[in-house]
Design a protein around this nucleic acid. Structure first.
Length: 426
DNA sequence: TGCGTAGATA
């Protein structure tokens, strides 16, 4: 821990009086430029430099330096240092600077919890669109999409007009919960501002919302209307087709992108930055498409292309897609060898895929292997035992089934269930 | 000087 203060006061309830009048500097000072430059390459250095500055020349600390150090704490998930900086903001009298308040919200979202974010938000007297968006985004980061949408509505009732960023986050919340009606409503609001259609992040969020809410036709319409697309635009659409079982469309789109790249690179030499090189996320979409369509040979070919042509190191999710692909076609032994040959340790998702497929294809031997691996990983769920037990039953292996049931009751932990009341909390 | 979008299983 890097200590800025001898005693860390409670930032939310501090009654410290401002010691420095605002604004101190109209332009960033030289030291601030250093703090800012390290923020990108080495955020810890920003914090250390700031700590030094505080000891040697506290009068040089202004709202810019505080901002950069707050951002550094957020980047490195340093909650204690972030809280100390918050205390400093109050002690030095920089509370009225709204930029600091929004970055503090962002810092708490990254380091502690949403309730701290909400406390900062509540204490801002004149909340603007960025404050509201930061709050919505904080709820999204903490997997609370229902609450995010609720706050989005609250913001509008408060008479604050959403900007492109607010809409982007709100659409992502709709995508998360499959709220097509709300997504369409937001799309309508966006359409009233033609300049918003130039915002690629917003358009990507719109494509993704339609994809996740199941309206693939509308997603494609939006996709087609985006003049300058990026890798994320293409990935959303490829994943969209893959998720909806339209594997051929997904792969057609992937080929179209490859074609586009080919023709662009042959046209002129200086357009390398115009190439949209497929990345690891896009290949997840491609492999998912092959898996859902049972295209095992194509899947293997794309897996190789990814590694050999594009130099992408497969991650756990890519291996997972391949295991899924083999398992769906009942190639259980091949899937098992594939898992054993993986250069990284397979996780519970992968073993559970094999377990599920062993159940479907009645292979009790591999089901037991997968089951024991899940137990080794300490990741076995009651459902996994039930899956294996069902296979034993289907095969008439009653002794094994009884043994397993006995083990299950020995290891049993109390069950728990949750009920969602209304739709407001998630 | 502050807020943003894609990604394996069941």
């Amino acid at each position: 821990m890097i200590r800025f203060l001898h005693k860390v006061a409670k930032p939310f309830t501090s009654t410290a009086q401002p010691q420095i009048n605002l604004p101190k500097h109209l332009k960033p000072t030289r030291i601030n430029l250093s703090l800012k430059s390290y923020l990108k390459s080495n955020p810890i250095k920003t914090i250390l430099l700031f700590s030094d500055l505080l000891k040697k020349k506290i009068s040089a600390v202004d709202s810019y330096s505080l901002l950069y150090v707050i951002k550094a704490c957020a980047k490195k998930s340093l909650g204690t240092e972030g809280k100390q900086t918050h205390t400093l903001v109050i002690k030095l009298g920089y509370e009225p600077i709204i930029f600091l308040q929004t970055s503090l919200m962002d810092m708490y979202a990254a380091t502690t919890n949403v309730s701290d974010v909400h406390k900062v938000f509540d204490e801002i007297p004149n909340k603007n669109v960025v404050c509201w968006t930061s709050l919505i985004s904080a709820y999204m980061r903490n997997q609370k999409p229902y609450r995010a949408i609720e706050i989005f509505r609250q913001m509008q009732m408060d008479g604050v007009e959403p900007d492109q960023v607010t809409f982007t986050v709100a659409l992502s919340a709709c995508a998360d919960i499959g709220a097509l009606d709300k997504g369409v409503w937001i799309h309508d609001l966006i359409s009233r501002k033609p300049e918003f259609s130039e915002d690629l992040s917003l358009m990507n969020a719109l494509v993704n919302m339609y994809v996740k809410c199941g309206d693939i036709r509308k997603a494609m319409l939006v996709f087609d209307n985006i003049r300058v697309k990026d890798v994320r635009t293409w990935t959303s659409m490829i994943v969209g087709y893959a998720l909806h079982g339209q594997a051929e469309e997904a792969l057609r789109l992937f080929s179209a992108l490859e074609e586009q790249n080919k023709s662009r690179s042959s046209q002129s030499r200086g357009t390398k930055d115009q190439l949209l090189v497929p990345n690891d996320a896009m290949f997840i979409g491609v492999l998912m498409a092959c898996s859902h369509a049972g295209m095992v040979e194509e899947g293997k070919r794309y897996f190789r292309t990814m590694i050999e042509e594009y130099g992408i190191k497969p991650r756990l999710s890519h291996f997972g897609c391949m295991v899924d692909l083999l398992c769906r076609l009942g190639l259980l032994k091949e899937a098992h060898s594939f898992i054993l040959a993986m250069p990284i340790q397979p996780n519970a998702v992968i073993w559970r895929t094999l377990l599920g497929a062993s159940g479907v294809h009645g292979n009790e031997e591999l089901a037991a292997v997968a089951q024991s691996k899940l137990r080794e990983l300490n990741a076995s769920l009651v459902g996994d035992d039930v899956a294996l037990s069902n296979i034993y039953a289907a095969k008439g292996m009653w002794e094994e089934k009884i043994m397993l049931r006995h083990e299950m009751t020995q290891r049993r932990t109390p069950g728990c269930s949750s009920v969602e009341v209304g739709k407001l909390h998630s």
